[in-house]
Design a protein around this nucleic acid. Structure first.
Length: 141
DNA sequence: GCCAACGTTGGC
DNA sequence: GCCAACGTTGGC
């Protein structure tokens, strides 16, 4: 079981939006190979932090992978007729009672090396088990 | 295959 | 709104 972090701009799709929909969310729109490859590596049941970028800049909840990577329904085929962009589907698990902000993460030595900090433009990245546990604790779980 | 130009992301 | 980081594109 692996852990991940997925970014979303909350004015486009917030954690509460995903909860309100009540159906699995196709994580479409990723147009970066590293992020795509991370989604390809996800397995059913893997969990991910849901991070609000731009607005809030904090981890607000947890989602679970409920469908393996599949072609992104919003991606156009390239000139070879192939769709290279893929995505997983996720479903909400629960909100963090206390969101963990990027600022707090940067100020926490054990978290300052996270992919979230080091690779700030990567929208889907890995989280280590130690990072996962600490953030859960800091988030009130 | 190198690298300059350009576009995008996301924090500030 | 600006800009740093960095991925992509295209000329050579």
């Amino acid at each position: 079981m692996a852990y991940w972090l997925m970014k979303s701009e909350p004015d486009v799709l917030s954690y509460d939006d995903v909860v309100a929909k009540g159906v699995p969310e196709e994580w479409h729109g990723v147009r970066n190979y590293t992020a795509r490859n991370n989604m390809r590596a996800m397995r059913l049941g893997d969990e991910a932090f849901f991070y609000h970028s731009n607005i809030g800049k904090q981890i607000v909840g947890i989602v679970r992978v409920v469908a393996l990577a599949h072609p992104d329904s919003t991606a156009e085929p390239n000139d070879k007729g192939q769709v290279v962009w893929e995505c997983v589907d996720v479903a909400p698990v629960r909100k963090l009672p206390k969101p963990v902000t990027l600022d707090t993460i940067k100020q926490t030595p054990a978290l300052a090396g996270m992919a979230l900090v080091k690779l700030s433009r990567l929208s889907v990245g890995p989280v280590t088990e130690a990072e996962w546990r600490l953030i859960l604790e800091m988030g009130g779980l």
